Amino acid sequence: MSRPPITKAGSERLRAELEKLKFVDRPRIIAAIAEARAHGDLKENAEYHAAREQQSFAEGRIGQLESLLSNAEVIDVTQLNPGNRVVFGAIVDLEDEDSGTAVTYQIVGDLEADIKLRMIAVSSPIARALIGKSAGDSFEFTAPNGVKHYEIIGVRYE
């Protein structure tokens, strides 16, 4: 089984989240459980049940992050030298050939993809269409709402 790729920056973000969960959130939740226990009758104690639910979520996320980080292959995109070709970790400036709208995406691992941050998974249809192309190339891919046509304006690695 191959190890899922993750950028160095993505790995650092996940490690920061893990540290926060372990050393900030976990102690806060444990204190909340202890305080709720002090109120007595646990059957009808909403604060206790809410704190236990938070604890369950936090512990689950800690386990998930530890597993992801131990299995992932961290790739430092600044050490890559692909020229102006699009490979994993590339930040790609695109122009929609139909509407003229410009958009920028970074191709990242599935573990760190977040469309709100314009970070798309390497396994996504648009990323698969981009891989191997160079600045100046046009390409098309099938999106959920139809075929899209883009031109690659620029490729960079940060």
Rank of each mutant, 00 (worst) to 15 (best):
S2A: 09
R3G: 06
P4Q: 04
P4Y: 07
P5R: 00
I6Q: 04
T7N: 01
A9W: 03
A9H: 03
A9M: 03
S11K: 07
S11C: 11
S11A: 11
E12R: 02
R13L: 04
R13Y: 01
L14I: 00
R15I: 01
A16E: 03
A16G: 01
A16D: 03
A16C: 00
E17I: 00
L18P: 01
L18A: 00
L18G: 01
L21R: 06
F23T: 10
F23S: 12
V24M: 01
R28V: 06
I29K: 02
I30W: 10
A31S: 07
I33L: 14
H39Y: 08
G40L: 13
G40K: 12
G40D: 14
G40E: 13
D41H: 14
L42S: 14
K43T: 10
E44D: 15
E44K: 14
N45L: 10
A46I: 13
A46L: 14
A46G: 11
E47K: 07
E47A: 13
E47D: 11
H49A: 15
A51I: 04
A51T: 09
R52A: 12
R52W: 04
F57T: 07
F57L: 12
R61E: 09
G63L: 08
Q64D: 12
L65H: 08
E66H: 04
E66P: 08
S67K: 15
S67C: 10
L68S: 14
L68V: 08
N71W: 08
A72E: 02
I75C: 01
D76Y: 05
V77P: 06
V77M: 02
Q79Y: 05
L80P: 02
L80T: 05
N81S: 12
N81H: 05
N81R: 11
P82I: 04
N84L: 11
N84V: 08
V87D: 09
V87P: 01
V87G: 07
V87S: 09
G89D: 01
I91N: 15
I91C: 14
I91W: 14
V92E: 00
D93Y: 09
L94I: 10
L94H: 08
L94Y: 08
E95C: 12
D96Q: 13
D98Y: 05
S99H: 07
G100K: 11
A102K: 15
A102G: 10
V103Q: 15
Y105S: 11
Y105M: 06
Q106C: 13
I107T: 06
I107E: 02
V108W: 05
G109A: 01
G109M: 00
D110Q: 09
L111F: 13
L111W: 12
E112M: 02
E112T: 02
A113Y: 04
D114T: 07
I115G: 08
K116Q: 11
K116H: 07
L117C: 03
L117G: 01
R118N: 15
V122I: 14
A129D: 14
L130F: 10
I131E: 12
G132H: 12
G132R: 09
K133R: 15
S134I: 13
A135F: 03
A135R: 02
G136Q: 05
G136M: 02
G136P: 02
G136H: 05
D137S: 02
E140P: 00
T142N: 02
A143V: 07
A143W: 05
G146D: 12
G146L: 07
Y150M: 06
I152Q: 12
I153D: 12
V155A: 14
Y157N: 06
